[in-house]
Amino acid sequence: MIPLLWGILHTLLVVAAAPWATGLTRRVKARLQGRRGASCWQPYRDLWRLLQKDSVIADSASWLFHITPYVVFVAVWLAATILPTLTTDMIMTPAADLIALVALLGVARFFTALAGLDAGTAFGGLGASREMFIASLGEPAMLMVTFSLSVLAHTTSPAHLVEFVLAGHVGLEVSVGLAMGALLMVALAESGRIPIDNPATHLELTMVHEAMVLEYSGRHLALMEAAAMMRQLLFLSLIICLFLPWGIARPGDAAPWLLVGLAAWIAKVAALSVVLAAYESWIAKMRLFRIADFLGGALLLALLATIFLYVSEAL
């Protein structure tokens, strides 16, 4: 019973907390740029307002355009639900390991890109093409991070990885550092943050994600936006879960541990959001074709992480 309860609570938590994390990043970024910035709760108001508006759909769009926001939102939500953030003792955790998690995010991306192509506009196609280009390098890098972690811990399940790290089986390994570097680079790309994509841009030629959802409005746009926020939170949680799992409760821990887990998670998400905002303010956006080097670098970094395991393993 307990795993089911935690599972449901966690499902609600991730969807409720996602706009807050985005709002926090925006606010810190605004402060760093010398503006006052909107409050952390602004994204909730934005989403609410979008929900109230009518949805306008292009004449040329097909039924795929209608269902895509739901598919995308549910796929990302599902992925975020499965990833342990507070406790590993959740009913859904064994349903998907990291490979399946990557694939779930792939579902969301696949349908977003198709929706971008559906209305038959130049911008939609541009966004879809670029998004798939970025993903075609980012997704392998994530799989390779999974590979190196699974060589280390003999598991691809995030819950067991957490337990492996918390049990103290892994020290400050070079490979872990490299894998974390690779995952950070991928996270920037996959959640559409600055050196790759600019979430704040509406300048036509630099848009990637924004270009794909250009034709959406009203509740559909609200779902797409919420999915994007949740995706960002998911990546922060993924980094926390794989590399900074301290504080996550384990099966058998008493219920108060869950509160500790919650507090630790909030603190870590907040810290990472601040770092993200600082990094975004510090760095400039990249040219599109430079992204291939950036993500190719992440892929090679993850490969190096695996290779380095062999040395330390042989010690």
Binding site: L51, D59, V74, T81, G218
Partner: peptide, 28 residues
């Protein structure tokens, strides 16, 4: 789980949000 989440999403969106959809020329 996905189906359960989808049903929840649809119910929530349609309960709290607008249900109207308009067809219009593409915006681009």
């Amino acid at each position: 789980t996905g189906v359960a989440l989808a049903i929840t999403t649809v119910l929530v969106v349609h309960h709290f949000g607008s249900q109207r959809t308009r067809r219009a020329p593409v915006w681009d």
